[in-house]
Design a protein around this nucleic acid. Structure first.
Lengths: 341, 341
DNA sequence: CTGAAAGCGCTTACAG
DNA sequence: CTGAAAGCGCTTACAG
């Protein structure tokens, strides 16, 4: 079954292919009646413009690239879902490129995506958002880039994100308001975008509340379950045992929960635990985890939108920097409560 | 910077574009010397054939589609990584299509992928592998399809998988050999590919060992942490308390571990726990989970290979059914041991 | 072993 | 408001 082409639609509608093209691309200068007739024929014939032909002849490829190198499949999954959602409303498709941002031969991955596919833009997720190498290769090619939650050179490309400092600040403030005084903190991976910002928000809230933070109440984690587990072991061994532990992502918070369970500490009566991210597991475990809901899906959707709408490209050409900050939300659930006296 | 085209290479190498085409596609009938000269020029110019032009003129698009609708991001992640690995060696790119296999408007998702992108083939992952609707739409289009771990109509398309019955059988046999007599089983989602096969393997091993299985030792789960958690609560309340619990996936096994932890049962001294899948978390939790390592990455790699190599297409045209079964592996770790007497 | 011509299905640039 | 021509960068089908 030979595919339906623009010629089929044109002849059946009694117009030139140029007119069909205009209609399919929502261009002006087509009589209403003509437009409707073409639309009807296209519909009847189930006409789908060939993306290769469009790409070859025109300036857009209707293809988006997504680069990631993320240890959390749940995060990446949300990003993909959000990006695909926006792609679908625009007739775009998403090509994925999982990469090892530390690899030597990054060029052999990035280059083909640019020059053979001519993607209309590339979305970067942490930690690729801050990969100097990838950014350089992409910049050289001139392809529009949108970074999700970058940490450095914020205005180097278009970006979307959320206010990590404020979110960590608010979560800490919430714990303080519950009556906690000794709130420990587990830091995220030092190379990862938001780690420092989240820590900053925590410090700020504690400072404003006049609470001193002993060094023993801040542990270095790496965003992994295990690192949360190990940090919790130390925190709960501390002579000045905290009544609440704020882990700067959910995987680490789950590690903290495991330690509490093993030690027979009741959550939240004896120890309050808060995370950050709102991974699927956070609302599955018992008790459900209090955490910060990152608008990952929406961030990816916005990133795709910046490319598809052409905003990213325009901003780039005009030398404007462009950023969209989306709202987070505290997901206050069962793992936090007032400390027992 | 205008892209380097086949014309640039041809004129610089002093040959026709047809010869360049032959060289780039590894076709025969090019003098060795000519071939090398073209290759050198292509290399020097960093020539990358334009995929849209190739697709438009020829029979292949160098594009692969991956359909998924999987609650486990870790599984999907592995599939993507495996498929991309094979794509890279063949100059292919992977387009992802997360779908809701129960949705009404599946056609509006599947159709464009086929007719506007002309993908060279589509990979289906469970549970999409068994979606009648998706299979029908794909068959109608004539696109080669490779299913990963399908449960029904095994020969309807090319497929890759592993022997779930044997794997569950071997895991159960391992527990029996450790000395367990009362081994409980938590079934997977009834609509999900492997659930029934895994249960069958368990039953077979128990039967051959002459162990009767009381109904109260088999619980219906749904592959979720929560369903494992709830099943474990019941199993551990049973008057005839099992000494080992075999959950038919890791998420459920983690639910079982959480219950054991909360009840102060030592793993594995007082209760052995086994899972299935070898998700990343399985080797992160403490104690590390004994489980079955599914060759997910390799299955996806093989699926992509069946398409890229043209085998799937050939088999389809010749009416042959084609399947590749890959080896699984028992990951025997810390969550299982001989029962204490 | 090599190449000239035609064509894939669209969009661009231009003309009217 | 509409269309004829040219061309995007390749592969196919054919000729030599």
């Amino acid at each position: 079954m030979p595919a339906v082409t623009i010629n089929d639609v044109a002849s059946k509608a009694g117009v030139s292919i140029k007119t069909v093209s205009r209609v399919m691309n929502n261009e002006p200068n087509v009589r209403g009646e003509t437009r409707e007739r073409v639309l009807a024929v296209a519909e009847a014939l189930a006409y789908r413009p060939n993306i290769s032909a469009r790409s070859l002849a025109g300036a857009r490829s209707y293809l988006l690239g997504l680069f990631f190198d993320n240890p959390s499949p749940a995060y990446v999954s949300d990003v993909q879902l959000g990006a695909v959602a926006r792609c679908r409303t625009g007739g775009y498709h998403l090509m994925i490129e999982p990469i090892d941002s530390g690899a030597e031969d990054l060029q052999t991955i990035v280059d083909p995506m640019i020059s053979t596919l001519k993607v209309d833009g590339v979305i970067l997720t942490p930690p690729v958002s801050d990969s100097a190498k990838v950014l350089e290769l992409l910049e050289r090619s001139g392809t529009p880039v949108v970074r999700i939650a970058p940490e450095h050179d914020l205005n180097r490309t278009a970006r979307v994100g959320m206010d990590d400092v404020l979110a960590a600040y608010e979560m800490t403030a919430y714990l303080l308001k519950l009556g906690h005084r000794d709130i420990a903190f587990i830091k995220g991976h030092p190379q990862h975008g938001a780690s420092h910002l989240r820590y900053e928000g925590y410090r700020k809230a504690m400072r404003e509340a006049g609470r001193d933070v002993p060094d023993s109440h801040v542990k270095q984690g790496f965003f992994s379950f295990r690192s949360g587990f190990e940090a919790a072991e130390q925190l709960l061994d501390d002579p000045r045992q905290p009544t609440a532990i704020f882990a700067s992502n959910d995987d680490m918070a789950l590690g903290v929960m495991a330690v509490a369970n093993r030690r027979g500490l009741n959550i939240p009566q004896e120890i309050s635990i808060a995370g950050f991210d709102d991974t699927p597991t956070a609302s599955i475990v018992w008790p459900q985890l209090t955490t910060v809901r990152q608008p990952i899906f929406q961030m990816a959707e916005a990133a795709a939108d910046l490319i598809i709408s052409g905003e990213a490209k325009r901003a780039k050409e005009e030398g404007r920097s462009i950023s969209r900050l989306l709202d987070f939300e505290l997901a206050l659930r069962e793992s936090t409560a007032a400390p027992s006296v």
